[in-house]
């Protein structure tokens, strides 16, 4: 086991040498990049990285430029998990045979958007977790197919207006609530599953370091506020992220060995869900009088989810 990088505070963290490079093609204010930076900077270990097709992939490896300072692979929309699992298997085999090129043990990390994770790549991730590869899978969850122009995914929350679930005279947008991916991954008996948000960097670093120190498959669901599809000013990425975590729409918690649930962030002042929704253009229509019931439903569901998390934390199930 390699040494865990010491990060006492932000000043110390700021001495990190980024391994994700600028002049990538991500939108100004994109949270993907903030998340990737925090993850890569959480360790000094070598990394073998993969990305499924999506914003992160198409913005960081367009010939003739790469924004990655570690080896990186992209195959398709659905299979960054299995590509990285294959690389992990190769490392294991070569280590056993004594034919490794480098004598250091890298960490294996696969990235995918919520489309790649909740939808098209779901089976591949499930397979990797069932087989127990020693890898981390990070879902950059912006709740929409952002790379292709904002179609709904199964991570799109209720009331969200997307180009395939547009709000209209007879619709308030997406009708269904998002899939509970963390519970599903915990049900794989994954040793470590966590939800993170880039605005809560310390919580995130701690979880990523725990993930790196864990043997076996680790699932990280990272909230990624999308300036383009959530429709807010690029400068407000962190402000919107704060609203998400402080309204408990994105509660921060971890699940160890499938059952031990720990809430890792309890906002001092819980803000109303409508403050979070109101900060984003994708929910603008919900503030029309005829959609008031959706706002109520949102608050109700968020409260119920928070209540359930607290009960699970207490009951350790």
């Amino acid at each position: 086991m390699s040494e865990i990088k010491k990060i006492k505070n932000l000043k110390e963290f700021s001495t990190s040498a980024d391994r994700f490079e600028g002049a990538n093609l991500l939108c100004p204010g994109c949270a993907h990049s903030i998340i990737v930076r925090e993850i890569l900077n959480a360790t000094n270990d070598d990394l073998i990285l993969g990305s499924s097709t999506g914003c992160l992939e198409v913005c960081t490896a367009v010939y003739p430029y790469t924004s990655w300072d570690n080896s990186w692979i992209h195959i398709g929309f659905e299979n960054s998990s299995t590509a990285i699992a294959g690389a992990e298997a190769m490392h294991k085999a070569k280590k056993r045979k004594g034919t490794l090129i480098s004598d250091r043990d890298p960490k294996f990390v696969a990235f995918g958007g919520d489309g790649s994770t909740y939808d098209i790549g779901f089976q591949w991730i499930s397979g990797c977790f069932e087989r127990g590869h020693d890898m981390m899978y990070v879902c950059l969850d912006n709740e929409v197919y952002a790379n292709t122009g904002g179609q709904r995914s199964s991570a799109t929350p209720i009331g969200s207006s997307t180009v395939t679930t547009p709000a209209g005279s007879h619709s308030y947008g997406e009708k269904k609530d998002k899939k509970d991916m963390l519970s599903i991954m915990a049900a794989h008996n994954a040793p470590y599953v966590a939800q993170v948000a880039p605005n809560k960097w310390k919580d995130m670093i701690k979880k990523i370091q725990t993930g790196f120190a864990t043997e076996g498959p680790v699932y990280i669901n990272a909230m990624s506020a999308c300036t383009t599809e959530w429709k807010f000013d690029p400068a407000d990425t962190i402000a919107v992220s704060d609203l998400a975590t402080d309204s408990l729409v994105f509660p921060l918690y971890e699940i160890i060995n499938g059952t031990e649930l720990n809430i890792t962030y309890r906002p001092k002042n819980i803000v109303p869900v409508k403050d979070y929704l109101g900060a984003q253009g994708r929910f603008k229509h919900l503030f029309k009088p005829e959609n008031a019931h959706v706002l109520d439903e949102w608050q109700k569901r968020t409260d119920a989810k928070w209540d359930l998390l607290q009960r699970r934390e207490e009951a350790r199930v």
Binding site: I75, N79, T82, A83, G86, A87, M90, A93, W124, G127
Partner: peptide, 28 residues
Amino acid sequence: IDGEFVMVESEHAAMSGCVGASAAGGRV
């Protein structure tokens, strides 16, 4: 056999795993 045998959940995953393993650098 000394190598790894990854029993995947579909043929798409089989070839995906092969691509990842081959890019990592070894016989696949």
